[in-house]
């Protein structure tokens, strides 16, 4: 773990006030009560692929190592499965902390450690914005195209199509403007 950051760097991310306080505010959970028992890191089904593991990410944030936390692959590998919060003796909503970190990472324009995962999420959101629901075939095709990875899953795609598990056409909701308004950030009256 990088521990050479100066105090100035620690309060990185251009955030007013402390980095840790900002993530506490955004996640709605004061995870400063974490005492590093590491239950979350031991139970996390994807921790093997992580750099710091959930408890490590929390520690980074507690200590103000904003850049290290925001640029870690861990925040993108987190699936929000809540296994960690179930095991946490302090009942910290770790998935919410990870969401707050991902949101901050995007806003701050830091280097994204897992651009492929972010792109996948964006394609899902694009689909919801377009149709109100997810259209899996289009999401996967756009995602694969973006990753310049056209062939790796073609066998799976064909199998799914042959078993009628992928719809060629999207299912679009009638009142799509209601959903699109949510994307434009307006929470004004919808008529």
């Amino acid at each position: 773990m990088e521990t050479e950051s100066s105090d100035k760097e620690r309060d990185h991310a251009g955030l007013k006030g402390g980095f840790c306080e900002e993530i506490v505010r955004r996640s709605g959970d004061d995870f400063r009560r974490c005492y590093q028992c590491q239950s979350c890191g031991s139970g996390c089904p994807v921790s093997e692929a992580m750099k710091y593991r959930p408890n490590g990410v929390i520690r980074l944030v507690q200590l103000g190592f904003g850049r290290e936390a925001l640029e870690s692959p861990d925040i993108w590998l987190c699936m929000g499965c809540n296994t960690c919060s179930t095991e946490c003796p302090m009942a910290i909503d770790i998935a919410a902390v990870m969401s707050a970190l991902r949101e901050t990472a995007i806003e701050e324009g830091v280097r994204i450690a897992e651009p492929g995962i972010l792109n996948f999420h964006q394609e899902v959101l694009n689909s919801i914005e377009r149709y109100g629901r997810t259209h899996k075939l289009e999401i996967m095709m756009r995602h694969k195209l973006r990753q310049l990875d056209l062939f790796s899953d073609i066998d799976i795609g064909l199998k799914l199509l042959s078993r009628r598990k992928l719809d060629l056409r999207p299912s679009k909701i009638l009142n799509i403007s209601e959903v699109q308004k949510l994307f434009s950030g307006s929470t004004g009256e919808i008529t």
Partner: peptide, 25 residues
């Protein structure tokens, strides 16, 4: 009638407010 996506992991994972609003609709 006319239900929409609940936001899935993607909205709740990178835009929690949007996820909340999609669920609210």
């Amino acid at each position: 009638k006319d239900w929409n996506c609940c936001g899935s992991s993607s909205a709740h994972g990178i835009k929690p407010e949007l996820g909340f609003n999609l669920a609210c609709r």
